[in-house]
Amino acid sequence: MSKAMKKTVSAWALAGASALAIATGAIAADRPAELAPLGDPPIPADNPQTPEKIELGKMLFFDPRLSGNGAMPCSACHLPDAGWDFPDKISLGYPGTVHWRNSQTIVNSAYYGNLFWAGSSKSLEAQARSAAKGAVAGNGEDDMLEARLAFVPEYRERFKDVFGTEYPRLGHAWMAIAAFERTLVQTDTPFDNYMRGDDAALDEAQKRGLELFTGKAGCSQCHNGALLTNQKYYNLGVPPYDGWETDEIAQITFRYELYAKGSTEEMYRTFKDDPGAYFRAKDKNHLGKFRVPSLRYTKYTAPYMHNGMIETLEDVVEFYNQGGGENEFAKTKSELIKPLGLNDDEKADLVAFLESLTGERIVMEEPELPEYDVLPAASN
Rank of each mutant, 00 (worst) to 15 (best):
M1I: 04
K3I: 03
A21D: 05
A21I: 02
I22S: 12
G25E: 01
I27K: 15
A28W: 12
R31C: 10
A33L: 14
A36D: 08
P42I: 06
P42K: 07
P44C: 10
P44E: 04
E52W: 06
E55M: 11
E55C: 03
P64R: 08
L66M: 13
N69T: 03
G70N: 07
G83I: 02
S91T: 03
S91E: 09
L92K: 12
P95G: 07
W100V: 03
N102S: 11
Q104D: 11
A110M: 02
A118M: 08
G119H: 12
K122C: 00
L124T: 05
L124D: 07
E125F: 02
R129T: 01
R129W: 14
V136L: 13
N139I: 00
G140Y: 11
E141Q: 14
M144H: 10
E146D: 05
L149K: 05
F151I: 01
P153N: 10
P153D: 09
K160P: 01
G164L: 01
P168S: 09
A179W: 10
T183M: 07
D192N: 15
G197S: 07
D203C: 06
D203Q: 04
G215L: 07
S220L: 02
Q221L: 14
A226R: 03
K232P: 00
P239Q: 10
G243Y: 05
D247W: 02
E248R: 13
I252V: 15
Y259S: 14
S263Y: 01
E266D: 13
R269H: 14
K272S: 09
F279P: 02
D283L: 03
K284I: 04
K289Y: 00
A302L: 04
Y304F: 15
M305R: 04
M309T: 15
E311M: 05
T312C: 06
Y320G: 13
Q322I: 00
N327V: 08
K333N: 05
G341D: 03
L342H: 06
E355T: 09
E366Q: 13
E368F: 01
L369A: 10
E371V: 04
Y372K: 13
